[in-house]
């Protein structure tokens, strides 16, 4: 039986701890700076300022979400072990799976908070530059799908964080993030090797690695191309299923570890 109160307690503490992180605050301010700086870049783009501002804003917000997931997430469990605060938690009546869910939720709360802060600046800028409310709503969808992707990255990050040091965990998560956004390349390799055994090798990795590019609608929404409800439902289902897989894997590793 999962104890919701324990999960919430861990989540709130994780949120407090990560939100106090000066690097995170620095990254948030740099993101806001870049959103505002895109006004200048747009002014030297031969009348393409609306596109430049929209692309820059969506990219910066997504990069901030990924930054939180990879770099803050990777150090979460390791920091607790290093500071020995984890040993206070272990004897308490709390399951290790609850710790992971709590940590993940806390980190997601942090991501949502910094995303909301930067989104306010971004939407303010694009609306001031004449974007329609419908277009702004589609930007919100892109940012929300970025958050769904972030849940997966947080889980992957926590998985590596429970295995190794923060630096290596960040590296591994970043590598998986890049692979996840290059699934098209693996798929083209599968098509190239039609009829040979190598195809199954690539198929294995194609399904093993997360396909993160499916959550990327940033390149489409600025042209008002919005995915259908069924497509969004499929994306969420994929995120849920893959997230559950990584979560189960993390719990397995976490349970067997001796602290």
């Amino acid at each position: 039986m999962i104890n919701n109160r324990s999960i919430i307690a861990v989540a709130v503490n994780t949120f407090r701890e990560s939100f106090r992180d000066r690097i995170l605050l620095g990254a948030t301010f740099i993101s806001i700076f870049f959103i505002l700086f895109s006004l200048f870049v747009g002014s030297i783009s031969l009348d393409q300022d609306a596109k430049i501002i929209q692309d820059t804003g969506l990219t910066v917000i997504f990069l901030l979400q990924v930054f939180v997931a990879i770099f803050v997430g990777a150090s979460l469990i390791y920091k607790e072990v290093e500071r020995k605060t984890f040993f206070i938690l272990i004897p308490k009546p709390i399951r290790r799976s609850e710790i992971i869910i709590g940590k993940c939720m806390g980190l997601m709360m942090t991501t949502i908070a910094v995303s909301a802060l930067t989104t306010v600046f971004f939407l303010g800028t694009v609306l001031a530059k004449g974007a329609s409310v419908a277009l702004a709503a589609s930007f919100l969808l892109a940012i929300a799908l970025g958050l769904v992707e972030t849940v997966l990255i947080v889980l992957i990050s926590l998985f590596f964080s429970s295995l190794t040091t923060p630096v290596l965990a960040s590296l591994y998560t970043a590598a998986l993030f890049l692979i996840g956004h290059s699934s098209d390349v693996i798929y083209s390799l599968i098509r190239q090797y039609q009829g040979s055994l190598a195809r199954y090798f690539f198929y294995f990795f194609y399904y093993l690695f997360p396909n993160l590019e499916k959550f990327n609608v940033r390149n489409d929404v600025i042209y008002q191309i919005v995915p259908s409800v069924s497509d969004i439902a499929l994306m969420v289902l994929y995120a849920f299923a893959y997230g559950a897989f990584v979560f189960a894997l993390t719990v397995m590793v976490f349970k067997d570890r001796e602290y």
Binding site: V41, I44, S45, I52, L178, V185, R218, N219
Partner: peptide, 21 residues
């Protein structure tokens, strides 16, 4: 395109700014 990692539009914008300068 292969190494854009989903940041296609942002990279296109970067190249565009680079070109017109």
């Amino acid at each position: 395109k292969n190494i854009s990692f989903g940041f296609d539009n942002a990279l296109a914008d970067w190249n565009w700014i680079d070109l017109i300068q």
